[in-house]
Design a protein around this nucleic acid. Structure first.
Lengths: 226, 226
DNA sequence: CGTGTTATTGACTTCATTCAAATTAGGTGG
DNA sequence: CCACCTAATTTGAATGAAGTCAATAACACG
């Protein structure tokens, strides 16, 4: 368990993003994927597609989402540079993935559960870590969706994105208000109003081109994060 | 769509629930855990506890939940017989777990990511599968929390529980309305009203002791599931 | 510069919550 | 077996937070 503690404590940072490029020289036969360049809103895979590949974001952002029959959409996550997506248990993707803006991803041939459990390389470990990270995010996000108010949702979202990007005093939103709304379980109007309220309360600042948010009072944001 | 839900139910079945008991005879040294008998509401672990163990439910039901500082609670999942819980990346549990009613669980000493990635036994495979199943459930649940109406939430919940239990025409709810509410992001009153509405619409029947629900019109429930 | 898209703001509505009360279930001791 | 008691659930009425509909406003791009 000690070993687990050590490697689990700082898992994201211990696995550099460019890691996989180096697998060429690694002993285990990690499949080195091919790079795919994506335009805004370009689809990577759709819900129900065969899970032939999974992906890692090189640059830009990718959203994964599910739809109800009448078109209501839930974006379960935004994937930034270094994040993996499309790892599935079954043989079909359970959500669709599209580029939020121009983006680059690497695709890897799908592993079997056997590969994962028996492969002893860095690659398998990285995939397991990615899966667990997704699970943790999903659990936090359920708390947000089920129990937080609109303003709290937006505050949490901004804080989270600020931590994941490496910019410090501000966040650059790669996604539209509509994407944010569908991620937070709100409407675009409510997202907009929440941002306005946070700005009124001097917690954030929203410069002219509305895709940058300046974090003025992190403590206040953290308080809203409860 | 439906097929997706159906296939989600299927893969778990390939790993029999009693699996671990048989690890005694398996070649890899899977840690055979000790059984713990739990009373109603008894805590298995708390948010922030060291992740020394993880667990598998033998009988009864277990809830895992997260709290906000002011007491708002989100139950991210109910774990029934055969389900695993408490598998974490870090060295601390990110949610707490309590028995919903009288229950039995087996505890296993925590694996390290290395164990998981390098172990080639059924045990490692089962843990990976359990993790992926959790992730799938979480993703479906985010769609529910973010985008479904109260009645849709309750309908989805009943259908899901009916599939996971093996009873066919009815569901026995091991948990209180309060637990259901905190799982669906609602209040107990709204859960109750939703059940009443479904009963008015002849979709379900709620016998005297209100912990059993008779599913009268599965098609209607599935429609609400979108 | 227009033009189409994206975002903000306002007025009104609605669904779920809150607060409060009534009802029912289930356990305990007589 | 019954009366009582406590906790759980249901129901009702009023409120409120977020949604809907509709109208600007501000960009981004050719």
């Amino acid at each position: 368990m000690h070993a687990a503690v050590a490697s689990a404590g700082a898992p994201p940072k211990t696995l550099p993003f460019g890691d996989l490029q180096r697998d060429r020289s690694a002993p285990d036969a990690a499949p080195l994927g091919s790079v795919r360049v994506l335009a805004k809103d370009e689809e990577i895979f759709a819900e129900g597609d065969r899970t032939a590949f999974f992906y890692k974001v090189i640059s830009g952002a990718v959203r994964t989402s599910k739809l109800l029959s009448d078109g209501r959409r839930q974006i379960d996550a935004f994937h930034l540079a270094g994040d993996m997506l499309g790892i599935e248990a079954g043989d079909e993707h359970r959500f669709s993935a599209e580029a939020v803006g121009p983006a680059k991803v690497v695709s890897y041939r799908r592993w079997s559960p056997e590969t994962l459990a028996s492969g002893n390389g860095t690659f398998a470990r990285e995939v397991v870590q990615a899966m667990m990270r997704s699970l943790e995010r999903a659990q936090n996000h359920m708390l947000l969706l089920g129990r937080k108010s609109a303003v709290e949702k937006v505050a949490t979202f901004l804080l989270d994105l600020a931590e994941r990007s490496f910019a410090d005093g501000h966040v650059d939103l790669p996604m539209s208000r509509s994407d944010i709304a569908d991620h937070l379980g709100l409407t675009i109007e409510t997202v907009s109003r929440s941002l306005t309220q946070l700005e009124r309360d001097r917690v954030i600042e929203v410069p002219a081109h509305r895709r940058t948010i300046v974090l003025r009072d992190r403590a206040a944001l953290r308080r809203l994060n409860s």
